Structures are given as structure tokens and as C-alpha cells.
Computed example of a mutant assay.
Amino acid sequence: MINGLRTAIYPVADLAKAKQWYTKVFGVEPYFDQPFYVGYNVGGFELGLLPEGGTPATTGALVYWGVEDIEAEVARITALGAAIHGAIQDVGENIKTVELADPFGNLLCLIYNPHFDLKAVR
């Protein structure tokens, strides 16, 4: 049986700068901080920063992080240096998504989903 999402890993060229930026964006300090990997606990899920882990990209798989107020989060994160890669979209049933480009070449995607059932996470 496959369980739900556990980890999203972003490759970064400058681990120190990425660690500083993501600490501001998510508002938590890393729980695992080594020269080869930095891990954050974000709402029970893991965000990992991997130096020399490949080329940052804005194509390929997308990982969406849940938010309660997508407009406020877009304003906050763009003020920290992200760029809007794709505007906020209402994808139906009041579910909204947005793609932001982080300063390191990755997409940081957000989702507001009023139908998300936290009790179903395993």
C-alpha cells in the first residue's frame, strides 16, 4: 500500500542561501541540517534541500503545499523574492492553485483546497 506524500526535495546550488530563504518562507528551522541535505518538517511533511542534487527546474512533477489564504501567501512569498510563474487559478469547486518560482530555479506551488480532509492523511 502506498501512503501519502512524505517528502518534496528541491535541488539547490547554494545551500546556505536556500536554507535561509526557505526558513523565512515556511517559518520553521530545519530539523536536519547537514552539508549534504537540509530537511524541514512542514505540517507533518518534509521539504528537503539537496545541494548538487540535479538542476532546478520549472518543468516536471509539481508539488503543491497547502495554504489557508492563497492570496496572502503569494504576497508574502513574492515579497521574500519569489516570482509568479503562473497566476492564481480557480481550478473548480473553490480550489485555487498558484506556481511561484523560487530564487533558485524551482517551482514552489501552493494550493487552497477547502475539501482537503486532514484526517485522511496516513
Rank of each mutant, 00 (worst) to 15 (best):
H85C: 10
A13K: 13
V91F: 04
A82R: 05
V121N: 08
V12E: 06
P56A: 07
Q20H: 10
L47A: 09
I2A: 11
G105K: 06
K17P: 01
L108G: 01
C109P: 01
V38M: 13
P35Y: 14
W65N: 03
W21V: 08
I70P: 02
Q89Y: 01
D90N: 11
G48F: 10
G4R: 12
Y37E: 05
E46Q: 13
E46F: 09
A13Q: 07
F26R: 00
V63R: 02
K119H: 09
G53W: 09
G43W: 07
E73Q: 04
N94F: 10
Q89G: 05
D117A: 14
D14E: 14
T78E: 01
P103F: 06
C109D: 06
T97P: 00
L80P: 02
T23M: 12
P35H: 02
K19Y: 13
I9E: 08
L107D: 05
R122F: 05
T7Q: 15
L100E: 08
D14T: 08
A8T: 14
F26W: 06
K17E: 15
K24G: 04
F32V: 11
I2H: 10
D14G: 07
Q89C: 00
P51W: 03
G39L: 12
T23C: 03
T78H: 04
A75K: 08
T55W: 05
R6P: 00
G43A: 08
G92V: 01
N113H: 02
T58H: 12
H115W: 04
V74D: 00
A72R: 11
G86F: 01
N94T: 10
A82C: 11
N3A: 03
A75R: 03
I95Q: 01
Y31D: 15
I88F: 03
V38Y: 11
L110R: 02
G92L: 10
K119L: 08
D69P: 11
Y64H: 05
G53F: 08
A83L: 09
E29L: 15
K19Q: 15
L100H: 07
T23E: 09
A75Q: 12
Q89L: 03
K19H: 02
T55L: 07
P51I: 12
L80R: 04
L80G: 01
L62H: 15
V42R: 01
F104C: 09
V98P: 02
R76K: 11
A18L: 06
G86N: 09
G27Y: 04
V98D: 02
T55P: 01
L49P: 09
F26I: 10
G53N: 02
G81L: 09
N113L: 00
H85T: 06
H115Y: 09
P30G: 12
V121G: 00
D33P: 03
Q20W: 03
L47T: 05
E99D: 08
L80A: 11
G66L: 14
Y10F: 15
I9M: 04
T55K: 15
G44C: 10
R76T: 08
A120T: 08
E52G: 14
D33M: 03
T55D: 11
L49R: 07
N41Y: 06
E46N: 15
K17Y: 11
F45K: 11
Q34A: 13
G81N: 06
L62A: 15
F36D: 15
L49K: 08
Q34T: 15
